[in-house]
Design a protein around this nucleic acid. Sequence first.
DNA 1: TATATAAAATCGAACGATCGCTCGTATTCG
DNA 2: CGAATACGAGCGATCGTTCGATTTTATATA
Lengths: 240, 240
Amino acid sequence: MNYKDFLENINITMEDFCRESFFENRDHIRVKKEATVVKNLQRIFDAVFKISYEKGFQAMSMRDLSREADMSMGALYAYFSSKEELLEIIQRQGRAIVNRAITVCLDAEASPDLKLRNLIRTHLYLSEIGRPWFYFTFMEAKNLSKKERDEVLAMESFTEKILVDILEEGSAKGIFNQKDHRLTACMIKAMQQEWYLKRWKYSKRKISVDQYADFVLEFVNAFLKPATTGPGKSEKMEDK
Amino acid sequence: MNYKDFLENINITMEDFCRESFFENRDHIRVKKEATVVKNLQRIFDAVFKISYEKGFQAMSMRDLSREADMSMGALYAYFSSKEELLEIIQRQGRAIVNRAITVCLDAEASPDLKLRNLIRTHLYLSEIGRPWFYFTFMEAKNLSKKERDEVLAMESFTEKILVDILEEGSAKGIFNQKDHRLTACMIKAMQQEWYLKRWKYSKRKISVDQYADFVLEFVNAFLKPATTGPGKSEKMEDK
DNA sequence: TATATAAAATCGAACGATCGCTCGTATTCG
DNA sequence: CGAATACGAGCGATCGTTCGATTTTATATA
């Protein structure tokens, strides 16, 4: 699987994101015509991502948003009831989509190393499609209410748990080593995060998501390779 | 080297941080007595870190800061001329200290693997001492002026360059493999960042910085090990 | 040592700007 | 033409910042 294949199989566009947001929140949205809502939500969300990337969600005023989305204040507030709700809608909808995509990509039949490979690639490719959202949700999580913040943490441990389960299965089958699986999962997640937090760096260096994914997999696999029956059975590193 | 050794060798406290900030900015600080300045800067910086950790620097009002630091608005403004300058002072001073500590820890004589080990540990231990600052500087960089933001990026590529140089030296000497050194450096930096960005996670799991450092080193070394003929002649690495 | 006085440091009410948000009015659409 | 949608000036609240009044500290004098 590479990014191109991924894009052909899964189909998540910004329009889908907005359409789902509409259905999910249609009670609170004063505008009723789907086409209008989708079009305007797209302008709103794009503007939020752009301004937040530059100066953060807190620093973005509703007047900034009004200007960037090219809508009046009154029009904006037809789609959400407060700035805080706007933040929640974006975060919630993104989580739902990521959650679904991750769950779909899991294949209970596959071998652990294939599962792991698949999951790492899926997550990276997802964050490539939804880069603005991933960056946004990481940087702006602290602006959420306690309840919503807990949801973010639950999502975090959910994805970590999936990784740990795969690592344990592989470990039990002798495909992976017996190291600390939770820490390994954290390292993998750190590398995934690196991709969307520092995208500017990789764009400048013209490193594609496929190259990055290949590298991460190589890095992780080098560590996971079980200790061969070589001379050093104690792989523990030594300090003095 | 472990964290305890590190703490004994290097001596960076919050008080040093404040004292240096005083000398660096004494022209702009209206209060003249060193002891007073240091004491109050400490209260101010601690409060900034605390509030910013909870809700971000932008969302922190000067009245929040006044309350948390237990100083009046007027007293606060004796130590900086604007909220933006306060942010700059903290960022600049932290960079100076980190820069110095990193430079000092480099040992041109040592072998590449020892250098690498030393650098990774130093950076992790530094971020353990200055956790509030590291987190702060990462999350609030976008609130800086263009000029200051460029300094942050320069710092980022400075530390990356040091890593790359070590990796290349080790590669040339056959101690490390011949993979993409820049990407390797990025992975290392991602793991270092993970430590101070997600400290709450590791605190909860009672994972010490020494445990974390050991794990990162093991992870990195597994990848760097050159593709040997035969199973491992360089199976372990040592520190002094 | 006690007191007076200048200097240093702190205080917080007040200012103009800007914030999130509302709502009466104007415009567009079916 | 009526319903749906968009508009943007204006509201009270809060923002960063200032500055004359007040308190604390250091110094000089008796």
